[in-house]
């Protein structure tokens, strides 16, 4: 691609990642949650795939690691949501308000759901480009 597109996409890529991770982490305070946060971080990686090649994006996240992360996070999420009365004493912590480390189990579940959605979208884009 062109020189201008490559330079600008390399310069703006960490800020897009920072915005996406911010929206995932503060899902219980600001509007957002896991799904828009995951979509924004994957848009940042898709920008690198478009302007450079697929091999340069494979240096950031490998495809085999993405498969393993997706399987493990899916198992943990299913176990926690289905067997909730067992984990009730270990996950629900503290009763402060309007802080980052609060809102009993929503912070934890937002991280898990965001990781799951991000790896699924990443695998879809990798497989569509790789043909």
């Amino acid at each position: 691609m062109d020189v201008i597109i490559r330079t600008v996409s390399k310069a703006i890529f960490p800020f897009i990642l920072l915005l996406g991770v911010f929206i995932i982490f503060h899902g219980h305070l600001t509007p957002g949650g896991s799904f828009p946060g995951a979509a924004i971080t994957i848009s940042g990686i898709a920008l690198i795939i478009i302007s450079y090649s697929l091999k340069k994006a494979e240096r950031i996240i490998n495809e085999e690691n993405a498969h393993k992360i997706e399987a493990i996070v899916a198992l943990i999420l299913a176990l926690i949501v289905i067997y909730e009365p067992v984990f009730r004493n270990y996950i629900k912590y503290g009763t402060r308000l309007f802080e980052l480390w609060s809102a009993q189990q929503i912070l934890f579940l937002n991280l898990l759901g965001g990781a799951m959605a991000a790896t699924a979208l990443l695998l879809i884009i990798f497989l569509m480009v790789k043909e």
Binding site: G33, L97, F98, I106, N110
Partner: peptide
């Protein structure tokens, strides 16, 4: 739930 975002509390709790 302790979170001011009611959409998040409905979706995850």
């Amino acid at each position: 739930t302790g979170s001011p975002n009611i959409v998040s509390s409905v979706v995850w709790d």
